[in-house]
Amino acid sequence: MLTNVLFYLFAAILIFSAIRVITAKNPVHAVLFLVLAFVTSSCLWLILNVEFLALSLILIYVGAVMVLFLFVVMMLDIDVETLRKSFWQHLPLAIVLGLVVLVEMVFVLIAKPITLPHTVASFPSDISNSNQIGLLMYLNYSYPVELASVILLLALVVAVALTLRQTNKNSKYQNIAKQVAVDSSTRVTLVKMATETNPEVTISNKEGETK
């Protein structure tokens, strides 16, 4: 009973914050609402007894990804409102289309309600959650996990390829071989010059008068 109440509470917060992510006018607020959405969905996971996934969601997404994202949003001065003029223009049409899909889904579900064929297995309390996930990931699902790592490598290559500009004159990078090969003669040049006598010293004060 209590879990039911909690589920609906968290689900309501989740939906609200998800809507605010796309409608908030201030990008920092949008990011913060996204953080809220992540935290509430991890609460939903906690209700399902999957504490490892719930905690890793908070640690990875909220702790690492979103904080980084927040920095990016704050560092870049982007006027989101001008970028999103067309968003508000097309919003009415989008709402109508979304409503049509929603109404259709509701009609189907009223006519033929979903009955879950399988009862949800309850977790034995003596088995560690992270242990089970680790076993599944590295035994049963090792193939997709390896493939996911290939996708990460691909993302890395593409990200570098899209940002690296060696031809750009403003980019500064060090030539390590050249740096190592220097000796004192290339760095310090001793020049012989005559001693200067009676240098004219002028001291100026704030008002610009010279003495």
Partner: peptide, 24 residues
């Protein structure tokens, strides 16, 4: 397996997107 199908599909589409964007 649906999971592998999806991962393969993402690998393909992300590389194609990368190839399109390479002409930056």
């Amino acid at each position: 397996n649906f999971l592998v199908l999806y991962v393969g599909l993402e690998l393909l589409s992300l590389s194609l997107i990368g190839l399109v964007a390479l002409n930056r």
